[in-house]
Amino acid sequence: MTARSISALALLLAIGMTSFAVAQRPRREVKWVNPDIPKMPGLVHKVLESKSLGHEVGYVVWTPPEMDTSGETRYPVVYFLHGAGGSERSDAAGFASQVAGAIRGGKFPAAICVFPNGGMSGYRGDAEKMIVDELIPQIDQDYPTQAKPSGRVVCGFSMGGAGSVHLSLNHPDLFCAAGSWGGALAFRGSGEDSPLLAVAKQNADKLKANQYSLLTINGDQDRPDAFKPLKAIFDELDIEHRVVILEDTSHNLGKYHEKTSGLMLAFLKNQLGLAGT
């Protein structure tokens, strides 16, 4: 065997071993309980013994200052869903700080914020069951919430933005609004094939009965047409869906917060303000 042949064989073996290593690389490990949250007034970490997941799962709750715990005052709830690779602690202090500032400025109602841990689930399957069947009832039991669709909204970033749309459309009796930063109907393939299009049609009457509305915000460098097929369906169904495309914006939560935090909170406030109308 010539030196050239030996070199070629070594290269092929190296490529093969690299491909094998990639194929055998374990999936990112999910840590389901992350109690090391930032110190912030009103922010607490809790653990749910989830039957759906078969193990403990952490979640974070933020309560507004001077919350009335007598039960006479009922508070709306904002559920914030983290992105892939995040956890219940990832965005808790940041988003809660924005809500707290808006409340102080009279731009948002006193509200409770909840941050579930969705692992890498896309907020589907067992994690979806955990949130819908276990966490939401637990929050309504433990806190003086407005336990009805008009008092509950969901929003999030990336996987959490997509998850917010997924949860709100599949469970129209739970939320009156959803907001998505940097989400998509499908992160691979075409959104035209998303099962959510059929779900939106199927649940249209319930969504409209609860005065549901959707806000999707994407950067011009971050799948700007991500929700175009859903927007077309919503237009046909006469369901409000506002699409915002930001200039010079990639997949960066900090940029979304910087440019549109006020817009997102104003949207959620408006939807919560429709309660009883």
Rank of each mutant, 00 (worst) to 15 (best):
T63P: 02
H251K: 04
T249C: 11
A92Y: 01
E72M: 12
G86I: 03
V99A: 12
H251P: 01
D225C: 08
D133K: 14
A178C: 15
V114Q: 06
S164D: 03
K51Y: 02
C155I: 07
L274G: 00
M67N: 08
G71I: 08
L215E: 03
M120D: 14
A200Q: 11
G219F: 03
F234E: 11
D173Q: 14
P64Y: 07
D248Y: 07
P38E: 14
S250D: 13
L197C: 13
V165W: 04
E56C: 01
A84F: 15
L207I: 01
M120E: 15
D225K: 15
P65S: 06
V99M: 14
E66C: 03
F157W: 07
S180R: 02
L167Y: 00
S261C: 11
P172N: 07
D133T: 11
V33H: 00
A186H: 08
V30K: 04
F234S: 06
A200N: 12
S250H: 08
L253E: 07
M130G: 00
R25E: 11
V165R: 08
A162I: 01
Q24Y: 04
G276W: 10
T260G: 02
L197R: 07
C176N: 15
M1I: 10
G58N: 03
D133L: 12
G163K: 06
A147N: 14
F157L: 10
G106P: 05
V47G: 06
D235H: 09
D36L: 13
P41Y: 07
G16H: 03
G156Y: 09
S194Q: 09
S70P: 05
A23G: 00
A226Y: 08
L196A: 02
H171Y: 13
F227H: 13
G101V: 04
F187P: 02
L43C: 10
P64G: 05
D238K: 14
I131E: 06
V99P: 01
S150V: 06
L246F: 00
T277C: 05
A110T: 07
K129Y: 00
R104S: 14
Y75M: 11
D238Y: 05
F108A: 10
I245E: 09
V78R: 10
H171L: 02
T145E: 10
P26Y: 05
D225H: 13
G54P: 08
K31L: 10
C155G: 11
G85S: 14
N218M: 00
A10N: 09
I139T: 02
G125Y: 04
H45M: 12
Q221W: 11
F95S: 00
P35N: 06
Q271C: 13
T216I: 13
Y143K: 12
A275N: 13
P64E: 06
N270A: 15
R28A: 15
F80M: 13
A96F: 11
G254E: 05
S180D: 09
A204M: 08
V199Y: 11
A275Y: 08
S158N: 02
F108W: 05
P41R: 10
W32L: 12
G101N: 02
C155M: 14
G122A: 06
I131M: 14
V243R: 13
N117V: 01
S87C: 12
A266H: 03
D68R: 07
P137S: 09
E236I: 06
S164A: 15
M120L: 14
M1C: 09
A110Y: 03
K46A: 13
M130V: 00
L13E: 04
A209G: 13
